[in-house]
Design a protein around this nucleic acid. Structure first.
Lengths: 217, 217
DNA sequence: CCAGAACCTGACCAAAGCGTCAACTTTTTC
DNA sequence: GAAAAAGTTGACGCTTTGGTCAGGTTCTGG
């Protein structure tokens, strides 16, 4: 083999590799979301990416490798909205910001939310223990925030995990169960105004429901 | 053909037919839930039902026929919990009852809830327009109940559809996203006590959050 | 008891899909 | 400009799966 110095460093991908890698993942997430892992074919992903099927295997070893790369990306994004929740913030603003951020994610990344939902509904067979531990650890950090607010008298001492489940279930619904959301909203698609109304409604119910106050009592 | 009187009436199925029909559906819902429509094989359903594969085709014309029969059954069950919501009831009791009923369904029929969730997450390709119209019509009936309570000053005039989405999203989460629920609860499975705590927490937040009062002001 | 109906089933077929491969083309580097 | 590396791709092999079929068995009613 020729001198190793000639080989590109692993993180210095060429522009062709980076472009095709991204194209495949973009195409894949749309189709995995619509059809699920087993209902999606490599030929469909290739066609949507504008590449011959065999070429997909040049960039990803297997179909499962494509899917698990997407799942790993989704875990990274799951964390981001939780940054709103810091104990040094006013709980009304922090919770309102979190709800808004979660709904923005549902609105702008419906496919990612749906794909993650699909994965979890089917038992999370591609979620690793490390994925689950990570998400649990992050959540426990934020549980502390809720507890700190409760100790400071800024909100009622509601069970933080069940509160998170209520927050996640309600905000993700608009993306994950879009078919039901549009049906019940009487629309063809969820509009930005619907997301605004959702943010307003969920925020009002949660703040009032958790006894959130902007001043300590 | 022999005299029609000899043929059994369509609704007087023999015990063999009824038994095998039920066995196939019971087996199917478990596997469709775990693996999704495309990930499930007729051979797996047959094995779980204790029948040879070709025999399954004696009872159901196609794989899709099995699946859509299950979906139709799920629609029927979706309605039942909503019976709690009647305008002549006290809203605190009615909403608490509805939340409790939904959580009971999640606890006792997790597979059905997950299968329906999977169907919707993937765009509801096996949900018919009639299915969707039916669910929408039922919901609109209950929207009237919320509006009647608001007019009577028994609760705040929150947006009924967004409230339903919050109720559905939070109560179904324990079944649909069981993997996440157990992970965040720090458990191996969701226990009856967790459902009790969920009922208590969701009910408290929703009643307080919606300004539900047991006496008109 | 027998004929008809209902039920069962092993073997089979056609189609689909994951992944491979050898040969080719393009790009990159020296 | 040439060699090496990277990228491309049509054809193919193997396996799997939905569904069929012909022939068989069991059940039911007269």
């Amino acid at each position: 083999m020729k001198p190793a110095a000639r080989k590109k460093p692993a993180n210095a991908e060429g522009r062709i590799r980076a472009r095709n890698h991204a194209r495949i993942l973009d195409a894949a997430i749309t189709i995995f979301t619509q059809k699920g892992y087993d209902g999606t074919t490599i030929a469909e992903i290739a066609a949507a990416a504008g590449l011959p099927k065999a070429n997909v295997y040049y960039y990803f070893k297997t179909k499962k490798a494509i899917y698990t790369t997407l799942v790993a990306n989704l875990i990274d994004q799951w964390d981001a909205a939780l940054d709103n929740l810091r104990s040094d913030r006013d709980p009304a603003e922090a919770l309102a910001g979190y709800i808004r951020a979660k709904l923005e994610f549902s609105r702008l990344h419906a496919a990612q939310s749906q794909m993650f939902a699909s994965e979890v509904v089917h038992g999370g067979r591609f979620l690793t223990r490390a994925n689950l531990r990570h998400m649990h650890a992050i959540t426990l950090e934020k549980v502390k925030v809720f507890r700190a607010w409760a100790r400071a008298g800024k909100m009622d001492p509601v069970d933080p995990i069940h509160l998170f489940i209520l927050l996640w279930g309600s905000t993700q619904y608009y993306a994950d169960f879009e078919v039901m959301a549009v049906n019940e909203l009487g629309r063809r698609r969820v509009r930005p105004a619907d997301f605004d109304k959702a943010a307003e409604t969920i925020t009002a119910i949660v703040l009032k429901g958790c006894g959130v106050r902007t001043k300590p009592r």
